[in-house]
Design a protein around this nucleic acid. Sequence first.
DNA 1: ATAAACCTTAGACTAGACTCTAATGTCAAG
DNA 2: CTTGACATTAGAGTCTAGTCTAAGGTTTAT
Lengths: 149, 149
Amino acid sequence: MKIGELAKQSGLSTHTLRFYEKQGLIRASTRSESNYRIYSQADLSAVRFVKRSRDMGFSLEEVGVFLSIRADKPAHVCREAKDLAQQKIFEVEQKIHEMQQMLTALHKLSDACCGGNESAEFCSIIEVLDYTSVEQDEGYSVPAGKGKA
Amino acid sequence: MKIGELAKQSGLSTHTLRFYEKQGLIRASTRSESNYRIYSQADLSAVRFVKRSRDMGFSLEEVGVFLSIRADKPAHVCREAKDLAQQKIFEVEQKIHEMQQMLTALHKLSDACCGGNESAEFCSIIEVLDYTSVEQDEGYSVPAGKGKA
DNA sequence: ATAAACCTTAGACTAGACTCTAATGTCAAG
DNA sequence: CTTGACATTAGAGTCTAGTCTAAGGTTTAT
Ligand SMILES: [Zn+2]
Ligand SMILES: [Zn+2]
Ligand SMILES: [Zn+2]
Ligand SMILES: [Zn+2]
């Protein structure tokens, strides 16, 4: 099949497929007389392998490592693959944690504000973003802010 | 204070502060005779406002909106600020959800593999990444894979 | 007076993963 | 035979948020 068909079958764009080739990830097993890329079913499998890996959060570089393991399994050991997976689990957990921290802060921010069409003069969101625990030399004092504003 | 001092006080680099200025976010209220940026306490507050907003996940563009609300509160309404906050909450929740999906998939991937120093010939990680629900025309069948490999 | 430490500018570079363009060649259908 | 869809290449552009460099000017301390 040609690149357009592979794009359809894999859910990636032709641009992306050529880009992956340039990155050394996947290449067509043959070329036509007119130099068109001709892909086999095995090529399609490889592309899907790449896509699945990407969907799990692996970078293109990491996918490259998986591909080279896949290309010559006896030359590699399980540990190589598992290390990558566990490293990725760690990274994703870290990011989830960061985002959950953000989310907590954002909820506090949002909940304090009425969200109405009134002037933002006493808007709690701006106040909270503005608040500095130790504010000196400014004659500025943090508003009490009991209600939503 | 000069930019180096502001950097210390705010926890941002001088590079970043000049970059923020170029982005139209914060500028020194005055310049010295020798054209050095001279920042006031109010400038420091603004920079901290920016930093806090960034830490909550807002983009520089969004921070710019917050800053303009902050700069002229009566000209704005609470809804503007709250919309931004809620939109961000939505985005962060989306991302957390995606990452949790990834995490589930990654755990499945990782748990199936022994992680040992044996050949990756039957490595479950490669197998799982390779698996395609509907695989035809290839004489290829998905391995049973009961054990960790 | 001279070195260290600071400041200035414009602009280039980084990462990651695409995404698109231009200029040209090829192929199938009407 | 021409039109339109598809293909080729090298290389440039996009996005975000910095990060760094070069080539110089200024301030402070010794
Ligand atoms: Zn409000
Ligand atoms: Zn309000
Ligand atoms: Zn394994
Ligand atoms: Zn194993």
